[in-house]
Design a protein around this nucleic acid. Structure first.
Length: 729
DNA sequence: AGTCCCCCCATTTTT
DNA sequence: TGGGGGGACT
């Protein structure tokens, strides 16, 4: 068969990786080196030349987006839909396994997936139940503890507390939480992975089946795997030596949520027969940008080692701009972005990346002032919105009456007279009888010891859910969701909410109906499973699982031509012709919270490396000499990360006559930006009425020019042509 | 039940 | 500086 289309477009290293004989391998893929290409071409190669059935291939990613993209690209390569191949996220695949083998996994057939919000609520309830002081034992912290333990593969009985009160308490919360999950048939994200791992540990026959089934295992972004994910992969690979992992230790930026960079670092010793291939040729950035990235990351110890290079030229120097303050920094960025567009480029080709979300507001304001369309990534996602979760709470109760999380969420929403006291009573009953909240509510609705009013309210709610269930018995998904929204009373409830907020919520509910209409489950994973001890999931349960596992898009229309604003974390995997890295200051980036441990500082440096390598043509570092943060001004030095880049790759941008030059880099190349309206930032001025002040910002030109001046009585925007400002020496 | 106020807090995010 | 959560008050 002619396979030239699979190999033709590849460089030597890529081709070697794609055509590797079937044994374990590590593909160390630098930023922009064609990682996804290798992965997808490898799979196409296995299918077309090695004759491996798609059915025998498992490809794992971290995000749904990556999984969808991989599937799409393989299908494009093969020019045929991929049937039977498992492509999915760790969580998605673990979920399918547990559905198929729920008995072996000791789960109820219709177990429910809790997302982070459900989990937090449940943990909170558990800490309350244990009588813990919520101030001293915040639910967030307990949740974090539980998840970290699960990520490490630990159950409560595995944790040694050494008599330590903190550990002892957290373990007791973990234990009680676990009981609550079991009682309600609920499973959190970390549990999906842990259970899937235990499923194989405890069921050799099942494991053997999957050993025989999979001829090739492929993992994307391997540097982001946590302990349990790697353990799961290893047990699945067994002695078969069929695991190909692709990743980049220099881009490991998720240690704080359990990712273990050690996994990729020790892969070759765990798989002594494995081959390592480095992809170092970069197809994205200019030589200058790559040199900067290489120098920067060279400051980290214990790297596997990799040096990016390009056949293309050096391109432009990297610009460094020292803003007078964060407003000036943002102004500079918006100005450069505007220039970029004026030069005939698209808005969406420019990205502003920052370390923390708090930085986005000032940047946003600058974009608004400059009349530049922008999009901020990382807002709330569709299935995470309160109104969506509320509507789905009812749906969940229809499918699963014992879903306590859903019960708590909607029992009094919209308000129907089941307040805190009644709910407390229901909870107590549920606890003492060891039954779900729904059942406890059922008992109370006929209990003479409860006031008639409460009984009525509770039976009203029970009747509501029962009616919804009956009326939608033969309905399709769309009708079901529609009916539930109508009957629940959520619509009038949100209509009362004033402002655009309520309107937006109603629109989202309408959107939920349409999501239900177009929903179509992932057939490859749901029906092509090894053993069939369960019936296929109902469409309803498929939809609910989907809502938990895939939060949907964030806000904003991705198709619009907008300047892209996002954190450096969310920029991973993306690329832009122009990139601004904002807030390059000690304390902000590297963040002060990461300064104590060397390991965390290195992770910050990797994050910076990720940021730098997003840029294709032009890269800007900007920082603010003074920054208002949490209400107080701080004066930060230039980030060490900028200092770690050779001076000859940098050029400093400066406003003429700028007063202070506190921590500037001593670069030889300095280009100046002409000031506007005769004022420079930081300049002291005098006003007849307001007295002395400092110029913070300016905008416009000629008669329209305005300056933002900070006087002792506050800051003001003044028209230059009227204000008659005097400069003060 | 809903509103208001005060206090506390303050990286990064996917599933 | 501002947002969120919890408690108190109406």
């Amino acid at each position: 068969m002619d396979v030239s289309h699979i190999l033709d477009s590849l460089n030597d290293a890529q081709r070697e990786a794609v055509t590797l004989p079937r044994s374990s391998s590590l593909v160390l893929a630098g930023a922009g080196s064609g990682k996804t290409r290798v992965l997808t071409h490898r799979i196409a190669w296995l299918i077309q030349t090695e004759g491996i059935s798609p059915h025998s291939i498992l490809a794992v990613t971290f995000t749904n987006k990556a999984a969808a993209e991989m599937r799409g690209r393989i299908e494009a390569l093969l020019e045929t839909p991929l049937r039977g191949m498992w492509v999915g996220t760790f969580h998605g695949i673990a979920h399918r396994l547990l559905r198929s083998h729920y008995q072996e996994a000791k789960l109820p057939q219709n177990f429910q997936i809790m997302d982070g919000d459900d989990q937090l609520r449940l943990v909170k309830r558990v800490t309350q139940m244990l009588g813990l002081d919520e101030k001293k034992w915040p639910a967030r912290q307990a949740m974090w503890f539980i998840n970290s333990q699960k990520d490490e593969g630990l159950r409560p009985q595995h944790i040694e507390d050494y008599g330590d009160v903190y550990l002892k308490t957290q373990v007791s919360v973990y234990r009680a939480y676990e009981e609550a999950c079991d009682r309600g048939g609920m499973v959190d994200f970390a549990e999906l992975l842990l259970r899937a791992h235990e499923l194989w540990l405890n069921n050799p026959v099942l494991l053997k089946h999957y050993h025989e089934r999979f001829a090739a295992l492929l993992v994307d972004e391997f540097q982001d795997t946590n302990t349990i994910q790697y353990a799961w992969l290893r047990i699945l690979a067994g002695e078969q030596d069929n695991l190909m992992v692709v990743g980049d230790d220099d881009q490991s930026i998720y240690g704080w949520r359990g990712a273990r960079i050690e996994n990729i670092q020790r892969f070759t010793s765990d798989f002594p027969n494995s081959t390592t291939i480095k992809l170092e040729q970069n197809y994205r950035s200019t030589g200058t940008i790559l040199k900067a990235a290489n120098h920067l990351i060279d400051n980290n110890a214990g790297r596997l080692g990799k040096e990016l290079w390009t056949k293309d030229g050096d391109g432009e120097l990297i610009s460094v701009y020292a803003g007078y303050n964060e407003i000036d920094e943002a102004r500079y960025i918006s100005e450069r972005a505007k220039q970029w567009v004026a030069d005939g480029n698209r808005h969406s080709e420019a990205a502003v990346l920052y370390r923390s979300n708090a930085q986005s507001r000032v940047l946003e304001e600058a974009m608004l002032r400059a009349r530049l369309p922008y999009r901020i990534y990382g807002g709330q996602r569709f299935f995470e919105r309160a109104e969506i979760r509320n509507a789905l709470g009812y749906v969940r109760l229809i499918s699963h009456r014992d879903a306590d999380a859903a019960f708590e969420r909607v029992v009094n929403l919209p308000p129907r007279g089941i307040g805190g006291k009644s709910l407390e009573e229901i909870r107590r009953r549920s606890r003492t009888e060891g039954i779900s909240l729904w059942r406890a509510a059922g008992q109370l609705s006929t209990d003479e010891g409860v006031t008639g009013r409460t009984r009525n309210a509770i039976s009203g709610f029970i009747a509501l859910v029962e009616t919804m269930d009956e009326e939608t018995e033969n309905a399709n998904l769309e009708m079901l969701v529609e009916t539930v929204i109508e009957k629940s009373g959520l619509i009038p409830y949100y209509e009362k909410e004033r402002g655009e907020r309520g309107q937006a919520r109603l629109e989202n509910l309408a959107e939920l109906v349409s999501a239900a209409r177009t929903f179509n489950p992932d057939e490859d994973l749901s029906f092509d499973i090894a053993t069939t001890d369960g019936e296929p999931m109902s469409m309803l349960d498929e939809f609910l699982s989907h809502a938990s596992l895939e939060a949907g898009e964030g806000q904003g229309d991705p198709n619009q031509d907008c300047i892209q604003l996002m954190t450096m974390h969310s920029a991973k995997g993306l690329e832009f012709p122009v990139v601004f890295l904002a807030g390059m200051e000690e304390g902000l980036f590297p963040h002060s919270m990461s300064l104590e441990e060397p390991g965390r500082l290195e992770e910050e440096r990797r994050l910076c490396y990720v940021g730098v390598t997003r840029a294709m043509q032009q890269l800007y570092f900007t920082y603010a000499e003074s920054r208002r943060l949490h209400g107080t001004d701080s004066y930060n030095r230039l980030s060490r990360f900028v200092s770690e880049i050779p001076e000859e790759l940098l050029q400093e941008v400066r406003v003429q006559n700028t007063v202070s030059h506190r921590h500037g880099i001593s670069s030889k190349t300095v280009i100046t930006e002409t000031d506007i309206a005769g004022f420079t930032l930081g300049q002291r001025v005098h006003h007849a009425k307001f007295g002395d002040g400092v110029v913070l910002n300016y905008e416009g030109q000629g008669k329209q020019a305005r300056v933002h001046v900070n006087f002792s009585e506050g800051s003001k925007w003044l028209m230059v042509s009227f204000a008659n400002l005097q400069t003060v020496g």
